[in-house]
Design a protein around this nucleic acid. Structure first.
Lengths: 177, 177, 177, 177
DNA sequence: ACAGTCGGGACAACCCGTTACT
DNA sequence: AGTAACGGGTTGTCCCGACTGT
């Protein structure tokens, strides 16, 4: 008996995300994914067309959420945008921890991948908000520090209760702004 | 005329570091390095024996410096170690920016590479110092935030004068502790 | 049109055996085999996974037959085992002439190949039977002479009718015991 | 202090013979030899020009002895030549055990090596003598059996006292003729 | 009969590393 | 010190025939 199309699709994405996060995008072969899921490589490519398509589909929700956040931030006045952005970023990172780990790992080369090229713009806008719309290098630098603090703490730090985690990250990030 | 051995060796390391940092360890082939330097791939392997050897040699100074910092921190009392560690980490990251970028990119898979296996321990000890020797998850998490802030700001943030950079990073990091 | 899977598999084994017997295991490259069969090297490796796998599959029937012979010899009393063993060995060698040629050629290094490591034990047991279960060096030496006579005559000697061949080898071998 | 040229030459040949016999001609790299002897690969090639030259020089004494034996056999009448040849072959094999092991291992491909191409003729003439100058396939086959018995017993059989060895081989071989 | 789905088989382009030789 | 040619092996991609349910 063959499993349903949707099931396989979901399963494929799930396994891909796990393996990508664990061994990196390049470090994971289509064969690895197919083997773990228990289907053929050809079948995998039937669903996704290419390896990059998998990545794109994997990252889509996170990018979408980032867009949403950016849209929401657009309506906030300059003197309050930083604080709201911090909260948004913390929530974003907490939700898409593995996606971000993956993105972080292959950031340098990800520029080549068409599906991810807009990532830069999104981040740029986020950084702008975190810096309170200021263009001063010092402020931009601090914005990067905020992002780094939140992202790396999620990726490498100790695992604790979600609410505690959120609270801690938020407190630290706000102290940075 | 053939260039001197030392020159080629240095040049090879330089180009390797640049390409590794730009496209990741796996994303860079020996052929890429050899081509850019202008020598044959075989010649490259004559000098380094294997791809991993290049990486090890590339990372050696940074690891050494980390060891030094750890040794130095060992003599500091618990209530002051965090501040000193922050300063040490900021200097370390500023000095070995590209090495750390590279390390960051392949962190998940780096565990397989023998030359980097001790990296984990070193980071663990550094995090301990940054957390003021505390074992409380909250403190460890904050330590990771400090590291993340400094590292990512260096890797992705705007480039500004070294002294200003150092000052800003230091100020931000201290506010986090 | 692509040929059937079983066909290619068989063809690959056939050509491999021929080339291995002709130029030795090391003396034959995967490319040689693939070229002669008319498929790509990658396709070849898709079927067999590694060069050693080919060898193992090639030698499997011969090893199996040797095991069978050994099992059969186990039930023969000491004073008659030598003669029966001679007959068995002659038939074995006649059936697996090329496999044995191949094995002979790479004997020194074959110890490294996992698939062949048990070969030594099998031969040891066969020699024991050929020597009439005696441990006296002279008898063991004579056993080796029998094996050598049969094997080399098959590998290098003139080709004559199978029945005549068998008769001659048998006669000579029995005279040696 | 550097060792004398003659010493190095001898040492090189010695080590080469040992390694060739142990891992085969192809299975031994120039680097292996140079490393074990403790000199550079370049130095090795300065002495011998090519890998094949080493082999040729290594095999020269054995081939020469074979020629001598052939010449000596030429003067023996047909009805006695077989017995004399047997004795000559046994002595030859005993003296050049390792050379023959080596030759046996790479026989199939050795035809390509110019220095060894005349080997075939020599063996052909030897077989003729062992067969008592008969052209009957049965006799030629028996000649091959004699050769095989002696060679393989030397290469793979138990090690016993030289005189005993010689006696045993001789006895067995004569029984075959 | 006819999409959508899936698997076996194949392959070009590379990969890292070694070898004999200069 | 340096290299061309090759070694075995992997990767992403693709073709095609065989299954589904409709």
């Amino acid at each position: 008996m063959t499993r349903s199309a949707a099931t396989l699709h979901t399963q494929l994405l799930e396994v891909s995300l796990r393996l990508f996060a664990a061994h990196g995008f390049r470090g994971t072969s289509l064969q690895d994914i197919a083997t773990e899921v228990g289907c053929s490589k050809a079948s995998l490519l039937y669903h996704f067309g290419s390896k990059e398509t998998i990545l794109a589909e994997l990252l889509a929700p996170a990018l979408e959420a980032a867009d949403e956040l950016n849209a929401q931030l657009a309506g906030i006045p300059d003197d309050r945008v930083a604080e709201v952005a911090v909260e948004g970023v913390v929530d974003l990172v907490l939700r898409f921890q593995r996606e971000i780990t993956l993105l972080l790992g292959d950031v340098p080369e990800s520029t080549m991948i068409p599906a991810l090229s807009p990532t830069g713009d999104r981040i740029e806008r986020l950084m702008g908000a975190l810096a309170g719309r200021s263009e001063r290098p010092q402020d931009r630098l601090r914005a990067w520090m905020v992002l780094g603090a939140v992202v790396l703490a999620c990726a490498g730090g100790p695992k604790l209760e979600p609410e505690q985690m959120r609270e801690q990250l938020l407190a630290g990030a706000l102290r940075l702004v």
